[in-house]
Design a protein around this nucleic acid. Structure first.
Lengths: 111, 111
DNA sequence: ATACATAGTATCTAAATAAATACTATAGTG
DNA sequence: CACTATAGTATTTATTTAGATACTATGTAT
């Protein structure tokens, strides 16, 4: 974990964890259930394998998700929300409500 | 507003609005009260004037905040949350709770 | 006449983030 | 022996985002 990345402000802390293009949607999918790498990738066809790997590593470093490796061939790796990742589901729920309202207001403006 | 930026998924939509380094904290400050440019900048000493301008323009383009210009010299411009920006305060509230919990879990790990 | 205050713009550079593409390891299967 | 499946890594390139710095306009006050 990088030093000094997180201070005492919950907002700037949250921003650091959430910035980027994929964190929220990945957390959403893992919030539904534990998934293997390939399964998650099929849910998210718009990012490449290497990008997904990086995003997952970042979320893992930040403590939001857990990575369980099964010593098998072919490899099996499962991703799931950590304790604090599970807590994030309450934010996701509000975000979903807000996001839908937001989309509605855009429609009203014919955007 | 850029075309095709927002689809039908509330999570990817929210991610687009929130990504970047400053959106959440700016929305938080404007959620407390309407502020002038300079006042907001004093709350956020870690970003330059030109960066703050860009962030505010982006939030305005995305419909989260409103910009009111008073025809005076020296100029006076007030920023405030829009209708949908006010709705975002519920997300901010959950984010604050979560962010504080997150900070606590980091402390437990001596990070 | 000069300086001040406010809210910018303009330009350039740097840093961060994401994407594209090719490559790898290995047990099991036909 | 060749082929498959899975979850990657490595490297390079492109794109996006943020930062640094200098500059602007103008009414009022000194």
């Amino acid at each position: 974990m990088e030093k000094d990345l997180f201070g005492i402000c919950p907002y700037t802390t949250a921003q650091k964890v959430l910035s980027g293009k994929w964190s929220i949607i990945i957390l959403y999918h893992l919030g539904k259930k534990t998934m293997r790498f390939g399964e998650l990738q099929r849910q998210l066809p718009d990012l490449t394998q290497s990008t997904l790997t990086k995003q997952l590593r970042a979320l893992e470093e930040n403590g939001l998700i857990e990575r369980k490796i099964y010593p098998q061939v072919p490899p099996k790796v499962e991703y799931s929300l950590s304790y604090i990742g599970i807590k994030f589901k309450k934010v996701l729920a509000e975000l979903a409500i807000w996001g839908n309202e937001y989309i509605e207001t855009l429609k009203d403006k014919n955007c």
